[in-house]
Amino acid sequence: MTTTVQDQDRQERAANATIERSAAYYRLKADVEDFYYHEADLLDDRRFRDWLELLTEDISYFMPIRRNVKFGQQAARENTKRGEGISWFDEDKWTLTKRVEQILTGVHYAEEPLSRITHMVSNVQIKQVRPDIGTARELDVASRFLVYQNRVEYETYIFVGRRNDTLRLTDAGWKIARREILLEQNILLAKNLTTFF
């Protein structure tokens, strides 16, 4: 329960924050965008094991279910919560690794033959920098995604939404420590979620 309140606080702070648009900010933002483009390439080139390397060992990867709620209750009730009940994804590195291993068996029929997928990332904004812009070690970053999936012959899905990430600088460069994926759908309009976001 405590985590939830902290989550909300953190999200609200992140949403309200604006960092001064200095040259240092734009340099950092360019790095982050480059990181995201690289990530998209790994996923779309089906280099799933390499993609796992971009995740910290303690990653929390979360996609809530979005619900239709009365006006005024969006903040409290629209999205299912990380760490509580059932969401589309509420995963750690172990589960994500299992998902990759499953695709690599070659008999995961929901991804065999592999889907053709393109990840587009846009609207990148750095919301928080820790400890400061000059020596950033950890960032909260907001972005939008458009994921196009074509499967076998005629199956096509378009997933659109927002991502709120925490990126951490490691010896191997930036890694994703925390990802929240807000898919703009209530009832999932796809038979499966076999891709990563």
Partner: peptide, 12 residues
């Protein structure tokens, strides 16, 4: 739909 087992059911 996000479950590793049942994704294959939906495909079938």
């Amino acid at each position: 739909p996000a479950g590793m087992t049942e994704q294959d059911d939906m495909e079938n």
